[in-house]
Design a binder for these strands. Structure first.
Lengths: 333, 333
DNA sequence: TTGTACGCGTTATCAA
DNA sequence: TTGATAACGCGTACAA
């Protein structure tokens, strides 16, 4: 591949002149500018980003670490980040953290070796302390979908507990008195907090959530089916179901319908996340909206701001909002 | 950030020794190896990938150009590519082509500037000729989801026409005689070829598809709704519907149900692509499977092989297969 | 307005 | 087994 020297030689000028043309430098004659541009085209010259990054000591690249690419969130999150990088003429580099702490660590390390100027990390597996250490070592590192008090200003997160509370309040306001829950069996914070929110509201209202009204399984459609079957098998009598996420809600609805329950006439179902899926389900799913794209954009912008030495706001908390669709109604009686 | 020189100085050895330790070089005493490793850890040293790429003249990176990140395909395709890059210890760099030829071009150019050793391109907007030119200039460039005869060996593509044919044959074999079609209004090859496949089979069987039995709209759920409404408004009498993709099929099913038609009892519906969605719909969607993840993996592997000078097979064609679920049955009478 | 020359961090070659 | 040192491609003082 042609280098700047080749272009200079072919055009009969110095590399400095070519460099000035490439970077729209100020002082170069119109004649030489045209000549150099012509030669660049002929030779198919493309500046070497690596050499450039080396000499300028900065790489116009934002690295994104994502815990699992198969997550339906990923596309939406990546899309949000990409909007920001495109507007800023920044490259987007993506590393997959899979599920393990070890590979999340490797993903971050390789991005660091690239000398990305900005870094957005969606970590599920790494410990708080490990992330705190990274945040201290890397000024432009921003965490998304995770809250660590010690580095709160570097976190863009969702108030999961408030989401759980809002879901419970919505059902209570419609008159539901028998509420069951389906949660994720994964040992991470999100399901705990969402459930905690539900529990606290129900307790406040004098109808605490019984442990046997809670079923847990994997956070996907199959898991939702299994959990719903377990609830039904317990002979539970509920008019409303709060589910950890939309995928599980989809599975739960299938099982409910298969067992002769109509949604929402017999059982109201409320999901969480508002992924694309929720609009395709029948009935359309009422759910708590997780504004992931907006959050991703903020995270990317924050990271870029930090990279250029600006300071950022201390708090970047988002609150889930209720999206009313067709899977929730008043209880029959 | 600490450089190799810093490490060398702190350890009291030469940069060459440090370099050997970093790259697991053969000839370095155990004593020095341990010492250097210790110092690297203390200083938080990370090799600079840019400098390395510069001197080795190769960047262990695969670039992926995708036409639109919001496409439900993107996550699956990216996941496939990522599996391959991870197995090969290669970085994944992603650029968004949006929809325009201009920005697809820019996306490719920036990836080329990074000196990616491999390149997988999903282009919808660029002309055949532009892609042929790129393919000639860049030996490791592979096209996915597009077929250009002149560079067939660089293309990983789906036989859309065969898919249309298979869908039509399936319905015919069940006894359907009144078949309607919903297609995409986008001016690209895929919808044309899929429809062509359907038409050719129906013609062969002596029941050519009438133009007024075809409705077109945007290739998403709303477009599916609109197209289905138009078909119904024409007072058409059909027992089966072949739809361009699963999203449109979802919209079409909604409209059919809203108008009192049962799926599949009154109208059978067959989709295309087998995206995640199709398993969540009720009834579960019968569809033509587009093995995008497998194709993405092959494209990535091909690109890597080309990058290391290996030759690849001349043909990389995939054929859609029928996935029988619950949205298709025999006609009533 | 143009050109020369140095340095960015690393690998690799050659001597020691 | 080690260490000097010359590239790699580019940007940029500094000199002309």
């Amino acid at each position: 591949m042609a280098t700047i020297k080749d272009v200079a030689a072919a055009a009969g000028v110095s590399v400095a002149t070519v460099s000035r043309v490439v970077n729209n430098g100020p002082k170069v004659s119109a004649k030489n500018r045209d000549l150099v541009k012509k030669v660049m085209l002929e030779l198919g010259y493309r500046p070497n980003a690596n050499a450039r990054a080396l000499v300028t000591q900065t790489n116009p690249t934002l690295g994104l670490v994502f815990s699992e690419l198969t997550d339906p969130f990923f596309a939406t999150l990546a899309g949000g980040v990409e909007k920001v990088t495109r507007n800023n003429n920044i490259q987007l580099l993506i590393s997959n953290g899979l599920v393990s702490a070890e590979s999340e660590k490797r993903a971050i390390e390789t991005l660091l070796e690239q000398r990305c100027q900005a870094l957005v990390v969606h970590s599920k597996a790494l410990s708080n302390q490990a992330l705190i250490d990274y945040a201290e070592a890397v000024p432009a590192l921003v965490l998304i979908n995770r809250y660590i008090p010690e580095i709160a200003h570097r976190c863009v997160w969702l108030d999961n507990q408030a989401g759980g509370e809002a879901a419970a309040r919505h059902l209570l306001s419609l008159g539901h008195k028998n509420i069951a829950c389906i949660t994720s069996s994964y040992d991470i914070e999100d399901p705990r907090l969402r459930l905690e929110g539900v529990k606290s509201v129900l307790s406040e209202e004098g109808m605490p959530l019984a442990e046997h009204a809670i079923a847990s399984s994997d956070p996907n459609e199959i898991g939702g089916e299994i959990a719903a079957q377990n609830l039904l098998a317990r002979g539970l009598d509920f008019t409303a179901l709060i589910v950890y996420n939309d995928s599980m809600a989809s599975g739960a609805i299938t099982v409910l319908c298969d067992n002769g329950y109509r949604v929402p006439e017999d059982v109201s179902v409320i999901g969480f996340d508002d992924v694309l899926l929720s609009r395709y389900l029948r009935p359309k799913l009422t759910t708590m909206r997780y504004p992931i794209e907006m959050m991703a954009m903020e995270a990317a912008e924050m990271s870029l701001a930090l990279a250029s030495g600006e300071s950022v706001a201390p708090i970047h908390k988002y609150v889930p909002t209720l999206v009313k669709r067709d899977s929730v109604s008043q209880p029959k009686d």
